[in-house]
Simulated assay, not measured.
Amino acid sequence: MEDFIKQLRDNFSTRFEDYSMPKAGIKKRSKVPGVMITQFIEELPEGKSTPDFLSKPIALTIQEGKLAIFKAHVCGDPKLDVTWGRAKGDMSDTEKFQNKYEEATGEYTLEIPRVSGEETDTYKCYATNEYGNAICTAALNVIEVGFKKKKAMEQLEDVGSGRVNKNCIRPCVRPSFVLGNAKLAKPQGESNVYPV
């Protein structure tokens, strides 16, 4: 009877081995905080390893129009495939999102020239080989300076043209003031409220 059960068990596992679902990944800890490693198989062959980050990209806050560069150093055997992604946006524009590898330093980079507010996002670096993958993230924040300049110019134009922007008025002691060469008088129908 035991032989029959063993034979049935062996036959069953052999028959369904090719059709079984892949095993859930084994989560591993990296030496670098913030890196998530998943190992695809239970035991690694001797001398082989899952991907890991030696250094991961750091969060960046960059002024619009400047160059943003994320850098990563990875290790693992066999050779790794390193790719980049975004949490919310598309990265198919290869002129805007440039993936580079420097063989001399072993450094992978993602360069984003002339950043704008549209590139503000969380970026992900993926290192993958046949035994597993490693993922880390870094945020890009873009400071939009043009918006503030444009808003200030619009407010000055409103004052200079006689249009009063309600966000740009306050009580004033004097009935008029000089802005450049233009002298502005008290607005019609307003008492003690003057453009600033």
Score class of each variant (00 low, 15 high):
196 V>I: 10
43 E>R: 03
126 Y>E: 11
112 I>P: 10
195 P>K: 04
23 K>M: 13
161 S>H: 02
91 M>V: 11
119 E>C: 01
135 I>W: 11
4 F>Y: 09
139 A>S: 15
159 V>K: 00
190 E>N: 03
48 K>V: 01
83 T>W: 06
186 K>F: 01
109 T>F: 08
98 Q>M: 11
161 S>C: 14
96 K>T: 11
139 A>P: 10
101 Y>T: 09
68 A>N: 02
170 R>Q: 05
158 D>C: 01
109 T>I: 05
79 K>A: 10
54 L>S: 05
27 K>H: 09
121 D>Y: 11
112 I>S: 06
169 I>S: 02
26 I>D: 12
27 K>A: 14
109 T>M: 08
66 K>Q: 11
60 L>D: 09
128 T>D: 11
160 G>W: 05
56 K>T: 10
137 T>A: 14
161 S>N: 14
39 Q>W: 06
160 G>A: 05
18 D>Y: 09
38 T>P: 07
191 S>K: 15
187 P>Y: 00
152 A>T: 13
133 N>M: 06
56 K>N: 11
113 P>M: 07
80 L>D: 13
118 E>N: 09
116 S>D: 01
132 G>K: 08
170 R>D: 05
113 P>F: 03
195 P>L: 07
155 Q>C: 04
26 I>S: 06
143 I>S: 15
68 A>T: 03
11 N>Y: 04
62 I>L: 06
193 V>L: 14
46 E>H: 08
76 G>E: 08
176 S>H: 04
8 L>M: 10
126 Y>S: 01
122 T>M: 06
120 T>A: 15
25 G>C: 14
120 T>V: 05
41 I>A: 02
173 V>A: 02
117 G>T: 10
110 L>Y: 09
146 G>Q: 11
156 L>Y: 13
119 E>P: 01
104 A>Q: 09
87 A>L: 15
5 I>H: 12
52 D>R: 10
118 E>Y: 03
73 H>E: 14
8 L>A: 15
12 F>G: 04
49 S>K: 03
55 S>K: 15
157 E>N: 11
164 V>C: 06
115 V>E: 01
108 Y>C: 05
196 V>G: 04
88 K>P: 00
2 E>T: 12
95 E>W: 01
112 I>Y: 07
10 D>H: 14
120 T>H: 09
131 Y>N: 02
128 T>G: 00
78 P>N: 08
96 K>R: 12
191 S>Q: 13
184 L>N: 00
18 D>L: 05
111 E>W: 03
